[in-house]
Structure formats: C-alpha cells, structure tokens
C-alpha cells in the first residue's frame, strides 16, 4: 500500500511515518494529542519533501540538476544551497580531500553488489579527471563547475534533512521528540514523564543490540552492510576515496557516532569509515561516543 503519512498512537506518545529520502522516515512525538502529532508530522513531512525535491540527484528540475547541467557556466545559488555548498567546501578542507561532493561520478565505475567484479583501473582513472573540489570555482554564492563535473549532496542530504526537521519541530513543539530517518536520528529529551528516548545500536557484531538512552543528541550510522565487493579476501567497502577513486579497505563494517547534530554525527561516522583501519583511532581522538562493528 502506498501511503503518504501514518499516525500511530503509542503508550504516551505518537509516531508519524512517511516514506521519503529512500528510507522510512519516522518522527516520535511526546504527546497524546493526535491532532498536534498529525500537524507536527505534516510539518516534518513537508520539510523533508521540500529538501528531497530540492536536492535529489534523481530529479531534472532542481538546483542540483541545474548545477550539473550548467556545462561550465556559472550558477548563482540561493542562500540555503549556498550554505550547503559552503559546508561541503569546509568539509573537503577539514577531511583533507576525503569528503568531496564531486565524487559521485565514481558510481559509474563501481557497483557494490557483493560480487568480485572490480572495474578496470583505466575507467577509474578517466573518471578522476572530472572529480575534485579543488577544480571547482566557488565564490559564494556563485558556483562554476568544469564541463563534465557533477555534484551530489547525497552524502549530507539525509542528515541535513534530519537536522532541518528537528529545527522545525523544535520551534513548533515544546515537548520531547525524535526524528529518525533510516537510522540517522536526532532527539530532544527528556520526555514529560522524565524518561529518555531509547534507541538500539548494533554493536561489535550484527545482532547484538545495545539499548542506549538518548537525551538531547543525534546519532548517525555509516556502514557497508550489504554493499561491498569481495575479491582475493579483500573486502572493498562502498565508501570510495575520491583521491584515488578506489574503495577504502579495512574499514569497519559499521560505525555509529553520537554528536549534537545529525550532520556532525554523520560526518564523523563517514570520515571514520574513510580512515579504514584507523577508524577507531580517529574517533577516539575526536572525543565522541561511538560504536564500531568490524
């Protein structure tokens, strides 16, 4: 059944579900007022859909399509998009080139289907000519890509949506709530009865779930669960290093990080995977709570 929004009254709180961002979006609201929960759920859904429409790389009528089809022309961005691009530019710098919104083209070479089919090195090499944030001219709010280059905000889009929906709900509602988009989530607590939201985190190995109490914080998980390639005993994660065009090896299967915003948690967990065998060392240096599963 296709549906647009589902409202469920649970014990002392309400849950709103809606499909968006290629995952199940869920919002828990600490109220027993169904009208209020519905209104807040609508708010969450409309903000999520707005972001999805605006930044999905699968659409032909949004700002991402306009940038990617500019063919060398300069595109002047609106404030929100300029903010996202500026954020991505800062991440590129912070991560020493590991986080790069121009690296989406590598998907043309790599298909992570659990098989052992690695692409030919020449194919990857050719793609690298059109990859690299350093080749982009970014004079806010004006963005100029070389012809053939593309940007993809998929790496931060879902986390951004969680934080945006959180901000909308925070303003519209005074109680506790939790925004969960396929495991990337952000909560405000405690609930009116004094309890905290409980979330399950898979730790160490799949199947072992640890329940943690989340106050006002965010959680994001990055992992390769079913998306990897296996060849000659080497596991290639779906996390590609844009500097080489090749997947990171020896990365944890999944990394879950707690931070104050979903974007931060998501960046930490993504960067940790990119650090491969040094993932845990990197996270420990960041002074954040994390779980890594190898």
């Amino acid at each position: 059944m296709t549906y647009q929004l589902q409202l469920t009254q649970l014990d002392g709180y309400c849950r709103v579900n809606f499909p968006a961002m290629a995952c199940l979006c869920e919002v828990l609201i600490d109220t027993s007022d169904l009208q209020q929960a519905l209104a807040l759920g609508e708010l969450a859904r409309s903000e999520t859909q707005r972001i999805e429409r605006k930044y999905s790389r699968y659409r032909k009528d949004n700002i991402v399509a306009e940038i990617n089809q500019a063919d060398g022309r300069t595109v002047t961005l609106d404030d929100e998009t300029a903010g996202l691009i500026e954020f991505a530019a800062e991440l590129y710098d912070l991560s020493e080139g590991r986080f790069d919104i121009t690296s989406g083209l590598l998907r043309q070479a790599w298909t992570f289907d659990g098989s052992d089919r690695l692409p030919p090195a020449a194919t990857v090499e050719a793609l690298l000519n059109n990859i690299g944030w350093s080749r982009v001219r970014w004079q806010p709010p004006q963005l100029t890509l070389q012809p053939g280059m593309e940007i993809d905000l998929g790496g931060i889009g879902k986390e951004y949506a969680v934080d945006r929906v959180y901000a909308e709900l925070e303003q519209a509602f005074n109680g506790a709530f939790l925004v969960n988009f396929g495991g990337d989530l952000r909560a405000r607590g405690p609930r009116a009865d004094g309890s905290q939201w409980q979330i399950g985190v898979e730790k160490v190995s799949a199947g072992q779930v640890e329940l943690i109490e989340l106050g006002t914080a965010a959680v994001a998980t990055s992992g390769d669960s079913q998306r990897f390639l296996l060849r000659d005993g080497v596991r290639y994660s779906h996390i590609l290093d844009p500097r080489s065009g090749w997947p990171v090896t020896d990365a944890p299967r999944a990394v879950t990080v707690v931070a104050s915003s979903c974007l931060q948690a998501g960046i930490f967990s993504t960067l940790a995977l990119m650090m491969g065998s040094e993932a845990e060392e990197f996270l420990a240096a960041q002074d954040v709570q994390f779980w890594s599963m190898r």
Partner: peptide, 27 residues
Amino acid sequence: MLKTTLVVLAVVGLCGCSTVKPWERDL
C-alpha cells in the same frame, strides 16, 4: 502498548504562513 492506530491517507492542508526559516536567520 499500542492503544490506537490511525492511518491517515489524505494530506492535510498546509499552513501558508510566511516565517523566517532557520537557515535564513544567519543575519
């Protein structure tokens, strides 16, 4: 404990108020 389940299939009308969005609060 599940008390009631409501499935809302229709989209409720959206509020048309114009407010300053959070990302517009930079200034």
